[in-house]
Design a binder for these strands. Sequence first.
DNA 1: ACCTGAACACCGTTCAAGT
DNA 2: ACCTGAACACCGTTCAAGT
Lengths: 207, 207
Amino acid sequence: MSSLGVRVGYNGRMSERPFHHGNLRTVLLDQAELALRTRGVEELSLRELAREVGVSHGAPRSHFIDRKALLDALAERGFRTLAAAMRAAAESHSEYADGLRAAGHAYLDFAVSNAALLDLMFTAKTDTPPDGLLAAAETLFSTISDVMESGVPAGFFREAEIGRLTLLMSATMQGISTFVSAGRVSLAVGDQLIDDAIALFLGRALE
Amino acid sequence: MSSLGVRVGYNGRMSERPFHHGNLRTVLLDQAELALRTRGVEELSLRELAREVGVSHGAPRSHFIDRKALLDALAERGFRTLAAAMRAAAESHSEYADGLRAAGHAYLDFAVSNAALLDLMFTAKTDTPPDGLLAAAETLFSTISDVMESGVPAGFFREAEIGRLTLLMSATMQGISTFVSAGRVSLAVGDQLIDDAIALFLGRALE
DNA sequence: ACCTGAACACCGTTCAAGT
DNA sequence: ACCTGAACACCGTTCAAGT
C-alpha cells in the first residue's frame, strides 16, 4: 500500500493518499454510473463497487447510509445532467421550434445512453424521497417549463396552458424514451415519434 | 405433513396434495404479484415466496429457471391483463371518443394499482426477451392499435397515420403513468393529462 | 473524520437424492 | 415429473477498532 501513496497519521490532511481519499464519494458515484450503464441496477453491488475502487466493503458506508441512498444520489445527478443537456439543446437554436425539437431529442439521447439511470430517476423507491432528489427533479421540470414558456411570445403556446403542456410534453418524452430503452421501438422510430409529438403540440397535422 | 393432505407415492396423480401441487407455478405467480404490489421488485425474493407458499426454497426451480424467468412471467401476465382491461373499457362506450378516453384511464388505473409490475413490463431485463413475453406485449399493442383504428370510420383519424398514432398514444399513456407512479403528479392530475392528451389527439384545443 | 475487517442474516443457484 | 435439503458463493448492513 506504500506503493500507492505516502500515508501519514490521523489529521494528515495535506498528505498524498492512495488516490481517492477526500473524494471517495464522487469516485463511487462515477463507478456506480458506469456499472449502471454496463450491468444494470440489479447487478449493481456496493461490495463490488468498493472492490473496483480499491476500498474495503465497509467504506461506502461513510458516504452513503445504504444502497438506496447511493441510487438516490445517482438519480439526483441524472436529473441535473438531463436538465443541463435539454437547456443547452434548446438554446443552441434561434428558431423556437428547432430548439424545442432539439430539447426533445436531447431527452431521448440521454435515455438511450442512460436507460437504467432514467429508470432509477422515475421509480419511486421511497414514498418520501430525500430533499436533494426532489430539488434535482424540480430543476428538470422547471427547465422544461422554461423551454415551453419561451414559445409563448412567439405565439406557439398560450400562457394559461403552459403548466399542463409542460407535464404532457415531459410525459410524452418519458414514454417514448421508455419504449426505445425497452427495445419496443428503434431509436430511429423514437426520434420520429419525438418529432410527431412536437408537431402535434405545435398544432400542426402529422404530415 | 400428513395433516395437510393424503400423500401417496410417485405417479399418484389423482391423490390430494398439500394444496398447491399441480399448480405451484400459478400459486407462485399470484404470490409474486402480491409481493410486487406490496414490497416492490427489489424485495421480491424467491426464497421468501417459497416460504410464504409452503414449499422448499428449491421448488420454484421446477417452474422458473431463475428469478428473471419468474419476473418475465409476471410481466407477461401484466401485458395480457392490461390489454384485456383496455379492450373492455373501450368497448363499454358507444361514442368513440368516450371509449378512447376510457381506455386511456384504464391504462392509468392499471399503472397505479400495479406500479412495480408496469415498470417490469417496460424494463429490458435482457436484450432478447422470451417469445411469450414478446407475444404478450404484441397483444397489448395490437389492442391499442384496434382502439385507434376504430376511430377511422368515424373520421377521427386517417388510416395512414394509425401506426404512428398508436405508438404516440401508447407512449403518452406510459409516460403519464410513470409520472403518477413516481409521485411526480397526483392521480387527479394524471387523469387530467390523459384527457388533455386525447383531446390533442382528436385535434381539439385543450379547453 | 474516514476507513478496515469480522460478524450476521439473508440471498440465488446448483445438484444429488427422494417419491 | 416435481420437490427436498445441503452446499456454495455472493450480498447488504452493523459495528468495534484503528489511524
